[in-house]
Simulated scan of single mutants.
Amino acid sequence: MRVTLIKHTPEPELLIASAARLCYSASGIEQIVQRMTPEEVDRMLDQLLSSGHLSPFEHASFSFGVEGISRAASHQLVRHRLASYSQQSQRYVSLRRLEYVVPPTIKERGALQQEYEAAMESVHRLYLRLLEEGVPAEDARFVLPNATATRLVMTMNARELMHTCSIRLCVRAQWEIREMFALVRAEVVRVAPRLGRELKIKCDRLGYCDERESCGLYPLKGEVLPGSA
């Protein structure tokens, strides 16, 4: 799996803080941006997060190249609708070489991994035969497994990144998409450290777990807020 930050809003934290300051200032936009110090940026971001005023975070966007995740993971990913996706098509791209993902729980079972890989090879042989017999790629792809690796470009604004990471970095999320968003977070931290620190599991912000079962890191919501379960 590989995640690369392709493009992002220049100085995203400054933009977010300046947009928020504009809401409460009579000054012109350029003046606000020019006068904003790093300390003021930090204070403004803290204020926005503590008050729940998150719309200014939508001004900053990040585009990532994602390679080597399975179709099973990408099906989960596109459920996050406040984002844009462009994915390698199985209709227009013939998979002459099948790349696929092997889950860790299968890798650790040697004999089963061999059977798994044999099944992938068998399916791929059938796929190639279908193509050779003139079956269109858009129909031959029906035999391809969820394990098939894919490539995509994903663009999210900072607010949606915070929301998605709050869910997908949780240990209860599926391992593959959790690994992907750990790499996404690392890419954001590289260019916007302050913002990157806010890409964290939701219980870190809430102080409790609002799932039906806790991993043990935080108590359940009902234990912290009696009567709310």
Rank of each mutant, 00 (worst) to 15 (best):
M154F: 07
R97L: 09
A118D: 11
F142K: 14
E133C: 01
V102P: 06
K107Y: 02
Q88T: 13
V93R: 08
R141P: 04
E138W: 01
L130N: 01
R71C: 09
R91I: 06
I69V: 15
I106P: 05
V101D: 06
E67P: 04
E115W: 04
Y116L: 01
V101I: 15
D139G: 03
F142R: 14
F64D: 01
P104N: 10
R79K: 13
T105L: 04
Y100Q: 11
Q88S: 13
G68F: 04
A140S: 02
T150I: 08
L98E: 10
Y100G: 11
I69L: 11
R125L: 07
R151P: 05
F64W: 05
K107S: 11
L82R: 15
Q113H: 01
E108F: 02
P103G: 12
L112F: 08
G65S: 15
E133F: 00
V78N: 12
M120P: 09
M154L: 15
Y116T: 04
E160G: 04
G134A: 00
S74N: 08
T155F: 00
R125F: 03
E117D: 14
V143A: 11
F64K: 03
S94K: 15
E108T: 13
L144I: 03
G65V: 07
G65M: 06
V66F: 01
L144A: 08
E160S: 11
P136H: 01
A158D: 10
Q113Y: 02
M120V: 10
A118P: 06
